[in-house]
Design a protein around this nucleic acid. Structure first.
Length: 443
RNA sequence: GACCCCAUCGUCUAGCCUGGUUAGGACUCGAGCUUUUCAAGCUCGCAACACGGGUUCAAAUCCCGUUGGGGUCGCCA
């Protein structure tokens, strides 16, 4: 049975690159009806933090990538020690102080990568020179591989060693990880060889770059999955976007659920080249998903955002939120857009931008506003069709163009010159507030 | 620098394996339609096979090189 793993280190948040690696592993497992292991690589006790671990687990759940098994390397130190001891007993490793090192034998190493094909390393040729000192030269004057640390001086196991021991003992059949691990692979292969373990298949995913093609970093935008969550993206939008980075189901299809992607997923179809992250496209996808999402579900997502902004308290009018979401559904990329654009529904004191005021409310419309608010005050029922009829009648009586009143009214009641249709907006706001805001404008 | 990986519109990509396409789609951008604004939607448009050699009747597709980009070079993971 196929078994894959995602192995994050809790020394930082789960970033989009890691999330994509997790996603591809997860899709692989599902497609092969195998299992997906989450392995927390917390061997560095100094840098590993509980909060990061929790954040990673939360992000995985939010993305909709549940795991079948979870392990913590910090609980498996005895296991690593045992295997190191065995290598020591067999004379394949030796001690240096408290550390245990594996003797590396110069040789040609071939990796069969599911995505890239054969990758050849000649360890007699590659320089591994820690501490910035001279490369280790063999008798031909060539550089050779430095012995691999299995157990560190402080007794804790080293990354490459844990990785091999775990992958082998957990029966991992496919190691799917980022391209940055390619150069670790020959070292790990030698550890497999020494331990006599069966090799898994390898697949190295291309990296995700930032918008400019550089390395993804906090400076160039959001990198943590939790940042996207806080910005108000729907998880399925992020997941859909991420799966498109380096993979395509073909057939010009882009929007798809995780389950339909799984049906089409093939690790061999994954691209070799690194992909640049595009916030524009993510936002477009997000817009599409929000537009077709169930409104009740969007309301559930929206509530924490509204609370955070103090637009609602513990006791709130769900129907009002629902109506607002419905009206703005097609015109937002993220929930934060909604919070920003629909603010007039939730706040009492409207702030009208100076330029906007200048543009639409600089000419005195006191008479028109008064007439309109008087009529609205008596409008029953206060629905879209009726308010529009009343509005049109007022416009006709005044002998002005509808648009001469539409825009100023929108600004007066929402504080903005852009937004949903005026009558929908008026009805959403309600009679009381509409009348009040129309009267409140100081000319 | 050494080793390794990679290379189709600005970006994500289809096509490449199994040579013969007006090189397709999406995002962005531009134009138009629609319209009370903004979105959305619809229509149209701009825009690419990095370069140089081979192989071949024929190369985006196969081979080599160059250039460019990326990764790694920790008793971090």
């Amino acid at each position: 049975m196929a078994k894959v793993r995602f192995a994050p280190s809790p020394t930082g948040y789960l970033h989009v690159g890691g999330a994509r690696t997790a996603l591809f592993n997860w899709m692989y497992a599902r497609a092969a009806q195998g299992s997906f292991v989450l392995r927390i690589e917390d061997t560095d006790r100094q840098r590993s933090k509980k909060e990061f671990e929790e954040e990673i687990l939360d992000s995985m759940k939010w993305l909709g990538l549940p795991w079948d098994e979870i392990y913590y390397q910090s609980q498996r130190f005895d296991l690593y020690r045992e295997h190191a001891q065995r290598l020591l007993d067999e004379g394949k490793a030796y001690k240096e102080g408290e550390a245990i090192l594996l003797k590396m034998l110069p040789q040609e190493i071939k990796i069969y990568d599911l995505i890239r094909g054969e990758i050849v390393f000649d360890t007699a040729n590659f320089v591994v020179c820690s501490d910035g000192g001279e490369p280790v030269l063999d008798k031909d004057g060539k550089t050779s591989l430095k012995d691999e640390v299995l157990i560190k001086d402080d007794g804790s196991p080293a990354y490459n060693f844990c990785c091999v021991v775990d992958d082998a003992l957990m029966d991992i059949t496919h190691v799917i990880r980022g391209e940055d691990h390619i150069s670790n692979t020959p070292r790990q292969l030698m550890i497999y060889q020494a331990l006599g373990f069966k090799l898994p298949k390898f697949a190295h995913l291309p990296l995700i770059m930032d918008e400019g093609g550089g390395r993804l970093s906090k400076r160039t935008g959001a990198v943590a999955v939790s940042d996207y969550r806080k910005q108000g993206f729907l998880p399925e939008a992020l997941v859909n976007y991420l799966m498109l980075l380096g993979w395509s189901p073909g057939g010009n299809q882009e929007m798809m659920s995780l389950s339909s992607a799984v049906e089409k997923f093939s690790i061999k179809k994954v691209n070799k080249a690194a992909a640049a992250f595009s916030m524009d496209k993510l936002k477009w996808l997000s817009n599409q998903y929000i537009k077709q999402a169930d409104t009740e579900r969007l309301v559930d997502f929206m509530i924490p955002f509204l609370k955070e902004k103090k637009y609602i308290g513990e006791d709130f009018d769900r129907q009002k939120i629902k109506n607002s979401v419905n009206l703005f559904k097609g015109r937002m990329d993220t929930f934060l857009d909604f919070i920003e654009r629909a603010d007039f529904v939730f706040i009492d004191e409207l702030q009208i931008d100076g330029d906007v005021f200048q543009k639409h409310l600089s000419r005195n419309k006191e008479k028109e506003f008064r007439l309109l608010s008087d009529r609205f005050a008596q409008t029953e029922p206060f629905d879209v069709a009726t308010t529009e009829k009343v509005f049109r009648k007022v416009v006709a009586e005044l002998g002005i163009k509808a648009s001469d009143l539409v825009h100023p009214v929108r600004v007066a009641i929402t504080g903005r010159d852009v937004g949903p249709g005026l009558f929908e907006t008026i009805v959403l706001l309600g009679k009381e507030k509409t009348v009040e805001r129309l009267a409140k404008v100081s000319w």
